[in-house]
């Protein structure tokens, strides 16, 4: 359970670094976000939801069933799109709305 940050996409806004509940992400001298301790990630996805450009990719560790799929988010008002791409290229998109309560 951890994240990777796409250096090319990262715009250096620092929001992921600011919000991480484990203070695990630092901003490099090149103004790029980098995860310091990948094994210390709780998997809360806070950074993912903060990133305005979808540069933070969330994945499951191989020890908990991760087989290469990655997830990132796009936000549009109250709607969050969760985009999951498997290694074979198939994509799943789910949407949550912060104005809607869970049915369960």
């Amino acid at each position: 359970m951890s994240i990777t940050i796409n250096e090319e996409q990262c715009i250096g806004c620092g929001r992921c670094s600011e919000v991480c509940p484990g203070t695990l992400i630092e901003m490099t001298a090149q103004h790029k976000a980098a995860i310091l301790y990948p094994r210390d990630c709780w998997g809360c996805a806070s950074c993912l939801k903060e990133c305005p450009v979808g540069a933070v990719r969330f994945f499951l560790g191989p020890d908990i069933g991760g087989r290469g799929a990655v997830m990132y988010t796009k936000r549009n008002g109250s709607i969050t799109q969760w985009i999951i791409t498997k290694p074979d290229g198939t994509q799943t998109v789910l949407e949550t709305d912060s104005r809607a309560a869970n049915k369960y």
Partner: peptide, 18 residues
């Protein structure tokens, strides 16, 4: 799947992956 995205997104990812 949506309920888990709102509290434990890793489970939703696992369902899609596995």
């Amino acid at each position: 799947k949506k309920a888990y995205l709102n509290m434990a997104p890793s489970q939703t990812l696992k369902w899609i992956e596995q």
